[in-house]
Each structure stands twice: as structure tokens, then as C-alpha cells.
Design a protein around this nucleic acid. Structure first.
Length: 593
RNA sequence: AGGGGCGUCGCCAAGUUGGUAAGGCACCGGAUUUUGAUUCCGGCAUUCGUUGGUUCGAGUCCAGCCGCCCCUGCCA
């Protein structure tokens, strides 16, 4: 929706699409309004979508930042080229997939700001066609039923450097294969008794072409098709068919599927030979998956973090899941900006986490209203301010957007200031509060520090100062006071204590579990070794009164601190709880306060 | 070991038919600034993993070498 999108930079995928479009590759392609084999599109009008891409998650887990890259990529291309992007659940394995995940995936994609319109599909709705195509392949001599055990199959597959051996069942007749496959389908055999395989080449240097499995027996209830089937297609067979049925033009996936592409093409070419699929056939394009420093993105590791309770569930704000990022306060705009900023290529890359954070800062700086919060409160007493008196100061809600107005913040004799804004003996270059120094209380008065109180242990318990009555911000002459320091505060009498969660990176090292300098050659480290024990800190902050009204997911900049969001789960009406999304940049070294 | 990929500034990443290295982030200066934030201006690869070759001319073509990633699930 937002218009100021910069011109997209060229990348290898856009180059392919540009060339395809220039060649008029899809000019004759038709779209029957629903996915289907050649016949369902034949008499239909031209496909209104210039290109079709798809985001095809398997509904067996939560989406993470890596998926966000893929989502933004696929939906972004469709948007830019006047195409369509389908949301398709790749639910070919009945044993691992659940309804709960499809709902969460739908939410996540919507939240990121994308719309698939009518194009929400399930691979499991194509099982009839996949099965017909399988029978066609058998009939054409391109597939056979193998009755070896899984172990035998593995043993006969060969190795990376040695050819495999043909299965003793490889030369069964078409009739026998058809008969067996139909009986498989009818439920006459137990799991694993037989398997349908593509007949390609057991000596292929590409292991994926050594007669890959295409249909296995699984007596299991499927979340969508129930007990209708007891044979299920393998991903490598199903995926190209799903793409073709849906008129996908560019099937974009990650690099590890590169070796699979010859089989992808083989499946489609064989079936198209039977006139069953519309041409041109979809093409698979592979890109490098997202890697981020200080983060783990593998499903296995994320599960472990959750199950072993190193974090508080899948939506823990420290997790790089989309639900976690959402609770953390990261924004959809930020994810989109990030995807654009890092680009897409085939080179393995490792993106610095700060790039991600900077994208969030950039978006939040523009959109978040400002508020005042004292995270580590220290009392400031203005000795020459009349006891019992109070007045209003006025703070702009957004320095970049005066039209957002100002709000009143109460001022009184005793304030809370940030503990780190006072130093009895200041380091060089420090220009906040220290005895003798003059500082402006942001949006309020200029004060001169006169000293501090301490307890027996020597800890500072309160700071004293005197204010200049004619220095109030916004009043004539206030600008005559020049101070280098400018600190925030809240009135002790009017502020309220609130739970704030200060989140920090979950891992202490850029490559969690990676080797460290000086490690013995045989030392194996786990990613859990690098967990940051201090990644979540709960504090009681003092907030300005206006913050009480914050609604779940309202985002603010707490001035001089960073961006915070009212937790969508733990906030109660009138009692929001805040999560720190990301700190402000700080060139003075405050960093992780 | 066989196959498939990748290697351009600290991190990403452009580089259509060979013509003499975009941009972003980071970083370093300087200006503005009631956030040590933001914004703004300026700087930042004689060099494209490496070695040779072809050419008037190569990041772009050829050959060799080096390094990294992926592939031996009835997972996706």
C-alpha cells in the first residue's frame, strides 16, 4: 500500500522473469479459474496473471524469519509484475501436519501484509490428479512398484561415487505394476510393503535420479482428506505437479533443491507428454536461504529451544519466529524493508543482525509516537521548587510530525531520572548530571546539579539540583539557556511503576555453536553453549501517565531508550506491559542498558 | 570419491552482447538537532578467490588450481 517504494534492484530472478516476459513465454497460457490439468484450462481465457509464484509451506511448524524472506520475495515479485502469488499448503505427509499450523501460517502471511486473494490451495486437494498421473506414468513405462524393503532400497541406491543396482522388481510388466499400485491404493498392503518408483537410471551420478520414490503407503488420517487415502505422494513428485496444476510460472525455492531440479523437470515433462499438463511448464529457481548472525533458524534447533524451555514458547519475543517477532514489536514494514535491503542471490550469505534491527528502527522512527519512560529510576529533588506545587509541561508526540500534537506531562518537585544520567565524578565527555553541571530536563526546565545523597554503602540515593524558573521549554527566553545535556524524567508523584521486559539477543556469538578460537580440533560445541543467560530482564520502570492507555501492540519510542511495544498477550486493559523491541543507536556507549 | 552450486569492499549486492567496478548497511569526518536518536553533506574496491591464456581491451571468454555450501529419508 505505501507508495514510496524505491525502484527494485535487479537480481537474477528478476532477470529470468524479464527474459521470459520479453520472449512472450506465457502469452498463450490459459487459466480456468481453478488449478487443474491441461483439460481444465484448455478452453479458458488467457491467464490474467502475468506470472504466478507461490509460497508453499508445509503445515508442520511455525514460520520464522527465513520464511518471511521467501514470503516477501514471492508475493513481492507477483505484485511487481502484475502476477499472482498463491498460498499453498504442501500437506503431502499425513503424519506430520496439523490444522493448528495452517491457521497460524495464514495469520503470519496476512500479518506481513500480503494477500493471496482466491489463491489459497492445498496439495492434498490434488491427490486424485497425482494418482491419475502416477497411473499414467506406470502405463507409459516410467514408473514401477518396488517391493524391496526400505533397507534394501538404501543398500541398492549405491553411494555418492558408486552407481546403484537395479531393483529385482524393476522390470515388472505394466499390468502387474498397475495391479499392484491399485491394490496399494485400496489398502491391501501394510505400510512399507511396496512403493511406487520412477524408472529413470540407477547409475545416474545424481542420486536423486536413481529411481526416486513417488508414492508410499501410509495408513494414516490426513488433516484434510481424512481416511480417504492410504497412499501419499512424495514431496519431490508432488511439488512439480502442484506447481503445474496451479499455472505457476516461477517456482522459487532454496538452494538445497537444486539437485532435485532434473527430477522436477522429468516429472513434468513425462506427464506433459501424455497431454495432461498445460505448457509452458513451470520452472524451478533456487535462491540462498536466509542466515542471520546471533540467531538459529533451523526447525530442529527452534524446537529444542522451545521444548527444553530455554524460551517461553513459540512466541517468545527472543525467538526468530514470526509470532515471536510480532510480540517483540518488529513490524511487517520492517520485514519487507529488510527483504528488499538484503536482496536475493545464490551465494550463501550471513546477514548481520544489526541490518535487521536497523530496518526496524527505520520504520519505527517514522511511525512510533514518543513517550517518556525511566527504566532505572533515581530520585531527583529540585530543592528550590515549591513543595506541593505542580505544573504541566508539553512534549511533542512525534518530532517529525508536528500534526500529531503535544501532550501534557506533569512536573513537580521530585522527579525520577535515569540512574545513568547522573555521575558524581563524570568521565570525560559526559554531559549529563554531575555536581556543578547544568542540564535541561527535556521539555521542562534547566537545572543545575548541587549534589547527591548516599547510603552507608556509598550508593547514590537521590540527586539534588536547583531549577531556573525562567527556563521552561516553550516560554520566551527559555532558549537563552544553552546546555549540552538533555535528559528525560517523569514526575515521581504522577508516574507509575510498570513491568517492562528488556530483551537482548538470545545468543552471545554470531554463529551459535560454532567453533571458537583455540578450540581443540575435535571439540564439538552445541548452539546451546552460546545462549545468553541475560537475554531477558524484567524491570519495574517509571512511566509517564499517558502510557497507561496503551493498547496491545501499540508501539512507542521511549525517548533516548528505544522502541517498545505493549505486549499483545500479557497486557491488561489500563495495565499494559511493555517489551523492548530494539534500542536506539547510541554513539556514546550506553548500548545495552 | 561422483554430482550440483557458489566465491565482486567489514556485511549484503548490481554488473544484459568483453570497453575499463552501481547501490544499500557498517565505518570515518563535518553540519544541523530540547532524543549522545533522526536528518544532512563528504569520504570509503587501480580491483573483482587464485594462476595462466585469448584480446587493442576481461569481473565479464577459455584452462588449471584453491576455498566454501548442498546431495546416499518410503522428510520437505
Amino acid at each position: 500500500m505505501s507508495s514510496s517504494a524505491p525502484a527494485p534492484v535487479s537480481n537474477f530472478i528478476r532477470n529470468i522473469i524479464d527474459a521470459d516476459l520479453a520472449a512472450g513465454k506465457y502469452a498463450q497460457r490459459r487459466w480456468g479459474g481453478q488449478p487443474g490439468p491441461a483439460g481444465t484450462h484448455a478452453a479458458a481465457p488467457q491467464d490474467p496473471a502475468k506470472i504466478r509464484t507461490r509460497f508453499p509451506p508445509e503445515p508442520n511448524g511455525y514460520l520464522h524469519f527465513g520464511h518471511a524472506k521467501s514470503i516477501c520475495l514471492n508475493f513481492g515479485l507477483a505484485r511487481d509484475y502484475g502476477g499472482a502469488c498463491h498460498l499453498r499448503f504442501d500437506d503431502t505427509n499425513p503424519e506430520k501436519e496439523e490444522r493448528e499450523y495452517v491457521d497460524s501460517i495464514v495469520d503470519a502471511v496476512k500479518w506481513l501484509g500480503f494477500d493471496w486473494g482466491e489463491n489459497l490451495y492445498y496439495a492434498s486437494n490434488y491427490f486424485d490428479w497425482m494418482c491419475q498421473f502416477a497411473e499414467y506414468l506406470i502405463t507409459a513405462g516410467h514408473a514401477y512398484v518396488d517391493s524391496q524393503s526400505a533397507e534394501e532400497m538404501r543398500a541398492n541406491r549405491g553411494t555418492l561415487s558408486e552407481a546403484g543396482k537395479d531393483s529385482p522388481f524393476r522390470s515388472r510388466s505394466v499390468e502387474e505394476n498397475l495391479e499392484l499400485f491399485r491394490r496399494m491404493k485400496a489398502g491391501e498392503f501394510p505400510d512399507g510393503a511396496h512403493i511406487l518408483r520412477a524408472k529413470i537410471d540407477m547409475a545416474s551420478p545424481n542420486i536423486n535420479l536413481r529411481d526416486p520414490a513417488i508414492y508410499r503407503i501410509r495408513h494414516a488420517t490426513h488433516h484434510n482428506t481424512g481416511d480417504k487415502w492410504c497412499v501419499y505422494p512424495m514431496y519431490t513428485y508432488a511439488h512439480p505437479i502442484e506447481d503445474a496444476l496451479e499455472n505457476i510460472t516461477h517456482s522459487i525455492c532454496t538452494l538445497e533443491f537444486e539437485d532435485q531440479r532434473p527430477f522436477y523437470d522429468w516429472v513434468l515433462a513425462r506427464i506433459a507428454e501424455g497431454g495432461l499438463l498445460q505448457k509452458p511448464l513451470p520452472q524451478q529457481i533456487e535462491f540462498a536461504r536466509l542466515n542471520l548472525t546471533y540467531v538459529v533458524l533451523s526447525k530442529r534447533k527452534l524446537i529444542q529451544l522451545v521444548e527444553e524451555k530455554h524460551v517461553d514458547g513459540w512466541d517468545d519475543p527472543r525467538l526468530p519466529t514470526l509470532v515471536g517477532g510480532r510480540r517483540r514489536g518488529y513490524t511487517p514494514e520492517g520485514f519487507r524493508l529488510f527483504t528488499d535491503r538484503i536482496g536475493v542471490s545464490k551465494a550463501d550469505s550471513l546477514i548481520e543482525y544489526t541490518v535487521f534491527e536497523d530496518c526496524m528502527r527505520e520504520v519505527l522512527n517514522e511511525s512510533a509516537e514518543r513517550r517518556i519512560a525511566v527504566l532505572d529510576p533515581l530520585k531527583l529533588i529540585i530543592d528550590n521548587y515549591p513543595e506541593g506545587e505542580e505544573e504541566e509541561c508539553h512534549a511533542p508526540n512525534h518530532p517529525l510530525k508536528p500534526d500529531l500534537g503535544k501532550r501534557a506531562v506533569p512536573f513537580s518537585r521530585e522527579l525520577w531520572i535515569e540512574r545513568e544520567d547522573f555521575q558524581e565524578t563524570p568521565p570525560k565527555g559526559y554531559h549529563r548530571l554531575y555536581p556543578g553541571n547544568t542540564v535541561r530536563l527535556r521539555y521542562g526546565f534547566v537545572v543545575k546539579c548541587t549534589g547527591c545523597d548516599k547510603d552507608e554503602a556509598g550508593n547514590v540515593t537521590a540527586v539534588h539540583c536547583e531549577y531556573f524558573a525562567d527556563s521552561k521549554s516553550g516560554t520566551p527566553g527559555a532558549d537563552n539557556y544553552k546546555t549540552k545535556g538533555n535528559i528525560h524524567w517523569v514526575s515521581a508523584k504522577h508516574s507509575y511503576a510498570c513491568e517492562v521486559r528488556l530483551y537482548d539477543r538470545l545468543f552471545l556469538r554470531p554463529n551459535p555453536g560454532g567453533r571458537r578460537e583455540g578450540d581443540a580440533p575435535d571439540l564439538e560445541r552445541g548452539f546451546l553453549d552460546d545462549i545468553n543467560p541475560d537475554s531477558k530482564r524484567l524491570i519495574a520502570a517509571q512511566l509517564e501517565p499517558a502510557l497507561k492507555d496503551a493498547q496491545p501492540e501499540d508501539r512507542f519510542q521511549f525517548e533516548r531508550h528505544g522502541y517498545f511495544v505493549a505486549d499483545r498477550k500479557d497486557s491488561a486493559p489500563g495495565k499494559p506491559v511493555f517489551n523492548r523491541t530494539v534500542t536506539l543507536k547510541d554513539s556514546w556507549g550506553k548500548g545495552q542498558s
